[in-house]
Amino acid sequence: MSITMNTSHPAMTQTDTAQGIKTAGLAKSQAEIEAQMALKLIQSANVTVQPAGASTEALGSIVNISV
């Protein structure tokens, strides 16, 4: 009887490969969902700022100080 260490059975290697492929696929789909969510968040933050009412250039140019 012989004992070998650090060897993989072919069936286990195929199972590990299949699990790795499934995990990579799930990670990719999760990344795509997160990217879509980030884009929606950025688009929702894109708010158009309306300018304030008409201002006068003289506003604040004359200051009366009494001592």
Rank of each mutant, 00 (worst) to 15 (best):
V47A: 13
K40S: 08
Q19A: 11
I62S: 02
T23A: 12
T17D: 13
A45D: 10
L26F: 08
I21W: 04
S29M: 09
Q19L: 12
A35T: 06
N64E: 13
A35H: 08
A18W: 01
E32M: 05
S66E: 14
E32N: 09
E57A: 10
T4W: 06
A18N: 12
A31G: 12
S55R: 00
Q50R: 00
N64P: 00
P51R: 07
L59Q: 02
L59E: 11
I33E: 04
I33R: 06
I42A: 14
Q36P: 01
N64S: 10
M37S: 13
T17I: 10
H9D: 15
M37N: 15
M1N: 14
S29I: 09
Q19H: 09
T56C: 05
T56V: 04
K22Q: 09
S66C: 06
N6M: 08
H9N: 09
V63I: 15
N64V: 14
Q19S: 07
T48N: 10
S44D: 15
T23P: 00
A58M: 03
I65Y: 02
M12Y: 04
Q14H: 10
A31Y: 05
S66K: 14
S44Y: 04
A54Y: 08
S8Q: 06
E57C: 00
I21Q: 08
M5G: 10
S29N: 15
E32V: 09
P51F: 02
P10R: 05
M12V: 15
A58W: 08
G20T: 04
Q30R: 15
A35W: 02
A38K: 07
Q30E: 15
Q36I: 10
T7V: 11
V47Y: 03
M5F: 15
A31F: 03
H9G: 07
M12H: 06
S8T: 03
P51K: 05
S8C: 02
T15G: 00
N6Y: 07
A52L: 07
T15R: 12
S61V: 13
T4F: 14
N6S: 02
T4I: 10
I33N: 15
A27W: 01
G60N: 01
G25W: 01
V67A: 13
L26S: 10
A35I: 03
D16A: 14
I3W: 02
